[in-house]
Nucleic acid binder design. Structure first.
Lengths: 343, 343
DNA sequence: CTGTTAGCGCTTTCAA
DNA sequence: TTGAAAGCGCTAACAG
């Protein structure tokens, strides 16, 4: 029968070795002020007793948890997962763990998550605002308390005191649309996401800019801003869109991979040939576009790198003098247009 | 200029109100032993001073962190993300947070992660073993220390003291293959994953069982166990497989969605018609199969529910008397065959 | 080089 | 109904 044994703690080692707790602590820290022979004794004993430091006690007394809180709008979006992977990779290399929360596309949840992180569990926070997030007082209040914050992706407003990482959304879509125009496309449709999101606004802007620059007529009918926040409704929304238009586009620029794929699916089922009848471009390049037949031309987004960059900025803040108020770095990452079969 | 103000703590409230820390603590806990008027005073003051409880201090003194550690083999696998979503959902409803680590398909990382969780940061652990995991002493040792553990998905061996959640892998693939057989398919290929993984062994078994039951010849040539642990190599592996076979299959059962999609892609590019020339079935049903043209027939796996179940079992353990040794629940979740265009 | 001691912020007996 | 005080396990300043 196994009794749930009490955990071994510093005190146990100290008593066993007839030395003080402080010495044990220092020895395990490899503090040079401890005699080597003592250190060795301590390590040996610690090992043989199965000592495991108590992270919580450490955190309480040191004031550091070595945990980074991450708040993303949703889990089931490969982009966010990739960013989290990047964060995690960089964080681990610097001895941090990450605690991920989803705000489920809701401003209220975002606030709640932030508040729960304010309870001292994390050393700093990485956040990607939801489309609902219009005010930033919740974030500013966190910053004012001296908790480092880095924002990424969907940034509507500069938040003084927080670093930002984003991609060049407008330029990326400009490039994509310009490419279509140079392929002599004349009726270029645009399928974007929910209007409230800054990233989608920027991608729309890039589209309009390109159309304007080359004097291509923009047909309102060929513009769709999807409202769906849930994958399962996107399909229907896109199908309806194509049902409702009277002009047949010869190219379609879409603002996510999923929109692009659903567009291709709808068109293929309707009997169109891609790219012969119509070209399609997606945005994100998170795996699926390459598998689809035909494979999809895409804007690539350096998602993993974005995560790494975000983590780097945060960890830098940890080590900075706390000039809490005037710090503010904005990093814009480059994108690329990957040509595949759909154009 | 904003000085990084010190956090408000119980003591501050107590002093302000001229009462003891204990009373403040109890009041905030809504302990009925505190006079209502006192409680109200305390709440009011706490709010006005912007008090936030310190989670770390709470944890140290209560011995509970309300954090669940989750270890998965990889992040970039929709199945695991779905499970994590399920865990997260259930956990949050019960006031737990989750801390996710990836073992990156490595036994060593799995062990390291486990050890780091042993440092008191989490109240319990949920783990899905890697394909490399052959011995379970690292897990058993955790259990022996009294830390609740629940395993899911890829379980090779019953670990005494840990609950298990899995799906009926063999039955699922049996059903799928049987379905193909009843559609009069004679040359049914099998594309599985890395042989070391129990789930793939079971899916292979289901295939063999069905073939045997109906006396369908099994051609070794039509069997592939993919080795790739990384998405980017799977494509090449599957293409090579089809290049190398001399018998043309009339149906293909694959053990993941991705294998299924890559198979369809390869076949379509080679000029085959699906399902006229050949049927394809995938496994997992995590979104993409529905978008592909033709849409893919799949085994559905209740991933989200699996996560919820796993979390439920763990949280149940928290509340159980600690008969550490003899607990062991095994839950097997049902699957379903979803018919789509590829068969 | 080592020990003593005072916290870290909160919970929880025990006493009043 | 409230308070005093011990303690959760560890760190770090100070003393020796």
């Amino acid at each position: 029968m196994t009794l749930k044994k009490k955990r071994v703690k510093l005190e146990d080692i100290a008593r066993k070795l007839n030395i003080s707790i402080a010495t044990v602590s220092r020895a395990l820290d490899k503090n040079p002020r401890v005699k080597l022979s003592t250190r060795e004794k301590v390590f040996k004993e610690a090992k043989s007793m199965g000592y495991m430091p108590n992270q919580i006690a450490k955190s309480l007394s040191s004031g550091k948890t070595n945990i980074i809180g991450v708040i993303i709008p949703r889990y089931d979006e490969p982009f966010f997962i990739e960013v989290c992977r990047g964060i995690d990779r960089y964080a681990r290399q610097h001895n941090y763990k990450i605690l991920i929360s989803s705000s489920r596309n809701s401003f209220e949840f975002e606030r709640e998550n932030l508040i729960s992180f304010e309870r001292g569990l994390v050393d700093g926070i990485i956040l990607s605002p939801t489309h609902e997030t219009e005010t930033f007082t919740h974030i500013k209040s966190i910053i004012k308390k001296g908790i480092p914050v880095v924002l990424f992706d969907n940034i509507r407003e500069e938040v003084s005191g927080a670093d930002h990482v984003l991609i060049e959304d407008d330029k990326a879509s400009f490039t994509a649309v310009e490419f279509l125009i140079k392929k002599d496309k004349k009726r270029i449709a645009f399928i974007g996401g929910i209007k409230e999101k800054k990233v989608f606004q920027d991608r729309y802007k890039g589209y309009l800019d390109a159309m304007k620059k080359y004097n291509i007529p923009v047909y309102d009918e060929l513009i769709l801003h999807c409202d769906s926040l849930d994958r399962e409704f996107e399909d229907a929304e896109i199908r309806e869109f194509f049902n409702g238009i009277s002009i047949t586009p010869d190219a379609i620029f879409t603002c996510t991979d999923n929109y692009g794929l659903l567009t291709m699916k709808t068109l293929l089922k309707a009997g169109y040939k891609i790219p012969e009848d119509v070209s399609v471009i997606g945005f994100g390049d998170l795996g699926l576009g390459e598998v689809f037949v035909p494979s999809m031309t895409c804007i690539t987004q350096p998602s993993f790198e974005m995560g790494q960059k975000v983590a780097e900025l945060l960890i830098d803040q940890f080590n900075e003098p706390n000039d809490v108020n005037h710090r503010k770095k904005v990093v814009k990452l480059k994108t690329e247009l990957i040509l595949r079969e759909s154009t």
